[in-house]
Amino acid sequence: MALRQKVMAFSRAMVPQTISKSALKAARSDQSALIFRRLLSTTNPQAQNKEVSVTFIRASGEKIEAKGKVGDSLLDVIVNNEIDLDGFGACEGTLTCSTCHLIFSKEDYDKLPEKPTDEELDMLDLAYDLTDTSRLGCQIILSEELNGLQVRVPATINDARS
C-alpha cells in the first residue's frame, strides 16, 4: 500500500478526542504525527461535539446502541463504548486487517459519502461473510447525516455461542 494512502487512512481515524490510547500512542510515534497535529488544530470543535447515535446489530439480532461524535469512525465508537466484539479492530484502523467488517443496508451503503478505496476493498476481500454492502468500520466517519444509522456485525463466534 502506498504510504500516502496509509497516512490518509490513518489520519482519518485520528480525529481528536475520540482516539483510543493505543492509537494515540501509535500516532505519536508514527510519521503521520505531523498530519495528526495539523488535523487537531483545524478541525471545527463545534461540529466535533455533535453526538451521533449508531445501532450495531449482532447476527443473533441483539441490538447495541451507542453514541459517537461527528468525526469518529465506527471503529472509534466501538472502542470508546467498550462494546464487546472479540477481535474487532485488530490493526487499530490502519487498513491492514478486516476485523472491523460491518454490513450496511443497501440504502445506507449508497448514501455513504466516500466510496471504498481499492485498499479497503482488498482487505474486505479477506473478510468473513463478505456482502456487496460490506465496509470496514475504521473507514466510515460519522457525520450528522448518519445519526440513527443501523449496521450489522457479521456472524462471529460471539453469536455462535448464544
Binding site: 486487517c97 468473513y128 455462535a160
Partner: peptide, 15 residues
Amino acid sequence: GIIISTMNNAFKVGQ
C-alpha cells in the same frame, strides 16, 4: 491463512 483465520480458529477452540 492470515491472522484473522487463526483468530477465529483460536476463539472457537478457546470456547
